[in-house]
């Protein structure tokens, strides 16, 4: 667990020696079996059940199970709301990832410069990680509430901005970026922590050697440090990416779906869809979310798993 760039660490194979070991081996399987069964049911079986629900016509409160194929998906993609959801998810993910990585890297490098009060800065940048998206949503809802013409609220008041121009999450086109701003506030410290761990893992000797060879500070960063930080960037992209795809609570607490669904996301749409008794349509949204997340996660898990086997 010392390395941020991998979720798995090598395990030394253990060679059994005694007869006693055989009994212990059975015990060991018995110990882990309930967990495996629970996960088989609660993860894999339930995913299968959701997939099944998404291809039947259970779109009213009483259960029906007529097979309708991909009709629920077709219907979903034809709605303006879901099209907006996909657009918003894309914008949100890009903005959230890029800004988090940039801020995280910048702060990590700055804090690595042996600054005074480094621990205090670090703790300030990271405390939002400890609190709930709901709390973040409540706070930022008031901060980014534009107020009315002539009576600006929130940051518009603080920076003397016109609430009709700076409408933040009330803007149908760009509202989603305001939600991303709150998400960046909460999560950028995480990326910073990852990069700090990465930077500290790079031995000083490597940098010193390069400096002795006459490399400028920028060249040291470009040709030595950045390449070494690449696996961390990958992990950060995967982890932040899967959070952003399934984001729900922050939007729920902060802006709701917004005008013309400018801040709507698939998870919120699913919540409303189920509330209208459309279980099959809701399951279809869930399956699309799962597919999006899996595209990101499965290669990552396989990649890590292969690496481990090689070691």
């Amino acid at each position: 667990m010392s390395q941020a760039d991998t979720v798995m660490t090598a395990v030394a194979p253990y060679e059994p020696k005694k007869r006693r070991v055989r009994i212990d081996r059975i015990i060991s399987i018995a110990v882990i079996a309930p967990s495996i069964i629970a996960i088989a049911i609660f993860v894999y079986f339930f995913i299968g059940a959701s997939a099944y629900i998404s291809v039947i016509d259970w779109n009213q409160s009483n259960y029906t199970n007529k097979f309708v194929g991909l009709q629920n998906y077709q219907q979903l993609f034809s709605t303006f709301r879901f099209q907006q959801d996909l657009r918003n998810t894309l914008f949100f993910t890009i903005a959230f990832l890029v800004v988090c990585l940039a801020i995280g890297l910048l702060l990590a490098i700055l804090l690595d410069q042996k600054v005074k009060g480094e621990a205090i800065f670090r703790n300030i940048f990271m405390f939002p990680l400890a609190i709930s998206f709901i709390v973040t949503g409540v706070a930022w809802r008031w901060l980014l509430s534009p107020g009315t013409a002539g009576d600006p609220h929130g940051v518009d008041q603080l920076f003397n901005l016109d609430p009709l121009t700076w409408t933040w999450f009330s803007n149908a086109d760009s509202g989603i970026f305001s939600v991303a701003l709150a998400a960046v506030w909460q999560m950028s410290g995480y990326v910073m922590a990852m990069y700090i761990a990465g930077l500290r893992a790079i031995p000083d000797e490597i940098r010193e050697a390069a400096r002795v060879d006459g490399a400028t500070e920028w060249q040291v960063f470009r040709s030595i440090i950045f390449p070494l930080l690449q696996p961390i960037t990958l992990s950060a992209v995967i982890i932040l990416g899967h959070i952003s795809l399934k984001i729900f609570d922050l939007v729920f607490a902060m802006s709701g779906h917004g005008p013309a669904f400018g801040t709507d996301v698939p998870a919120l749409n699913m919540f409303d869809t189920i509330a209208a008794n459309e279980y099959s349509s809701g399951a279809a949204i869930a399956m699309i979310l799962l597919i999006l997340v899996s595209i990101l996660i499965i290669p990552y898990l396989i990649f890590n798993f292969r690496n481990e086997v090689k070691q």
């Binding site: 009213q60 303006f80 149908a172 779906h257 005008p259 013309a260 669904f261 869809t273 008794n277 459309e278």
Partner: peptide, 23 residues
């Protein structure tokens, strides 16, 4: 019924910004 109400409100809420009568 609720699902129809949702479809109706979703369409009208989109209209406020898009203002596309035909669509």
């Amino acid at each position: 019924k609720p699902s129809w109400v949702k479809d109706y409100t979703d369409a009208v809420n989109a209209f406020v910004t898009k203002q596309d009568v035909t669509a």
